[in-house]
Every structure is written in structure tokens, then in C-alpha cells.
Amino acid sequence: MEYQYPIDYNWSTDEIVDVIHFFEAIERAYEKGIERDEMMNVYRRFKEIVPSKAEEKTICGEFEEMSGYSSYRTIQKAKQASSGDRIRMK
């Protein structure tokens, strides 16, 4: 990994850790696949920390620009999948 995660230093340490877990889950979805339920759980926690759609779009856009991994497309695919499914991004 040659990039840094976009984080807000106003977040608590626990919030920063949870946002990093969200981005790591996005990476796993692209690299080896992830269980749909796990992806949705980390996304729900991410949304507790970043409730604003505009802020989510900015942060996820920064992540996509640095990593090439789309959080938006991953979450859309997870929302369409059934509980227990494994999602894998291309």
C-alpha cells in the first residue's frame, strides 16, 4: 500500500480506527472478496462517524483517487447482495 487513508484528525482514536477498518474492508472486497454482512457492518459504523453524504463523498473520493478502489460501487454491490453472500469487486 503506497497511500494514506483520508482521516479527519478531529475524530477520536476509536473513530479513526473504525474508518480505517472500513477502508480496509473496501480493499478486501477488491483483493480477495468479503462477506456482505461484514461489509455492511463496517459501513454502518462508518456512517455513524461520517453521517453527511457530502462528507462521505469527499472522503471516499479521496480514497478512490489514491487507491483506485470505489467505496460507492462496493457499497452498492453489498446492498444488492443477500445476507451471507460474498462480494468481490473487479
Rank of each mutant, 00 (worst) to 15 (best):
M1Y: 14
E2M: 04
E2H: 09
Q4N: 13
P6E: 02
D8S: 10
Y9V: 09
W11M: 11
T13E: 15
T13N: 11
T13Y: 14
I16L: 11
D18H: 13
D18R: 14
E24P: 13
A25Y: 03
E27C: 09
R28K: 14
R28T: 04
A29W: 02
Y30T: 06
Y30I: 08
G33P: 09
I34P: 01
I34Y: 04
I34M: 04
E35M: 12
R36E: 10
D37M: 08
E38M: 11
E38K: 08
M40W: 10
N41F: 11
N41S: 10
N41K: 12
V42A: 05
Y43A: 08
F46W: 01
F46A: 03
K47E: 05
K47R: 14
K47L: 13
I49A: 13
I49E: 03
V50L: 00
P51I: 11
P51E: 09
A54V: 10
A54E: 11
A54K: 08
E55I: 15
I59R: 02
E62V: 04
E62N: 08
F63Q: 01
E65W: 14
E65A: 15
M66H: 03
S67M: 08
Y69I: 05
Y69T: 04
Y69N: 06
S70F: 01
S70H: 02
S71Q: 09
Y72D: 09
R73M: 13
T74E: 05
Q76K: 11
K77L: 05
A78Y: 02
A78I: 10
K79C: 09
K79Y: 09
A81Y: 01
A81D: 02
S83E: 13
S83W: 12
S83Q: 11
G84F: 05
G84C: 06
R86K: 13
I87L: 05
I87S: 01
I87N: 01
